[in-house]
Each structure stands twice: as C-alpha cells, then as structure tokens.
Amino acid sequence: MEDTGTVVAFWILAALTVGAALSVAAVRNLIHSVVLLIVSFAGVAGLYITLSADFIAVVQILIYIGAIAILLIFAIVLTPRAGRLNQEGFMLLPALALAVLVAGTMIFVAFDTSWAISERDGFEETATAIGDLLLDKYALPFEIASVLLLSAIIGAILLVRPEGAEEGPE
C-alpha cells in the first residue's frame, strides 16, 4: 500500500463499494438494488486486486457477479410480493436498529483490534498456493464443504420434485 497508485485505487474502490452497498439498501426498486450490488461486488474484486490477490478477485467476479447475483435475480423474479415498483416495506424501524447495531459492532471491532500488518510483499502467484493448501493441509474441510454442497443440491432437487413424479421419457 505504499505507492500512490494503490492508495488512489483503494480509495476509489472503497468509495465505490461502500456507496453502491449503501444504495442497495436505499434504492426502492429491487432490481436496481441487485445491479448496485453487482457494482459493489465488482468493487470488492477490485480491492482484492490491490491486495495482489488475483485469484480471489477473479473468483469474486465469477461467483458473486456470475452466480450469486443471478440467484438473487431469480429469487426476486420468483417472489410474488416483489413487484416491479416494490412499494411494500415493513419493519423499517427494527431493521434500521439492527443495521445500526451491526454497523456499530463492526466499526468498534475494526478500530479496537490491533491488526497484524504483514511486512511482506505481495504474492507472485496465489492460485498455486491456494490449490496446494486446499488439497493438502485443508483437504478435509474442503471435501466436507463439497459434500455439503452436493447434499444441498440433491436436497433442493428432492424438495422441488413433486411426489410420485413420473420418470422423464429419456
């Protein structure tokens, strides 16, 4: 974070990310929210790049913009009460209180913690290191996570499958 380019990039990206994230909550239209959320995700990916975490940055775009945003879009489109204009809004005060509490906690933690700042330079290539760790030191959690996801997929199929559904022709 020494050179000016990184600092400038950090502040621009930080402003973009936080601004977009705030607008997500402020905007009335749900689809606009999703689009702003995509901008926010992209900003986070940019922040990863300033940290020389290129693999995580690209994966952030791939997973969050390419998959999570689509999931949200599907969820909104398939929700009957989420109309085009999204006039409904309820439990505003409790939500606001909760949001303030969460934000307060996080800001407090951010300022209270004595962060360990690494003195080392950026990694040359992160993908290899991540791959080695995932398949070596953290092989078991990695496998457990994938089995969990697989069971979630099977569970989702089971849930949406009507009882006694006939077999497809193929």
Partner: peptide, 28 residues
C-alpha cells in the same frame, strides 16, 4: 499477462448473464 487468465476468461464472460437479464427486464 494474468496468472489466472483462464479463470479471468470465464469470470468476465459470466458478466454477460446479468447484463442479459437487465436488458430483458428493463424493456418491461
């Protein structure tokens, strides 16, 4: 010359998907 070039290709192509939805949805 990215180290994660292949992943970058897939990730960037994935941006098409929300864009297509935005096009279809905003037409109303």
């Amino acid at each position: 010359d990215l180290n994660v070039g292949v992943l970058f290709l897939i990730a960037v192509a994935g941006i098409m998907t929300p864009a297509v939805f935005i096009a279809g949805w905003s037409s109303n």
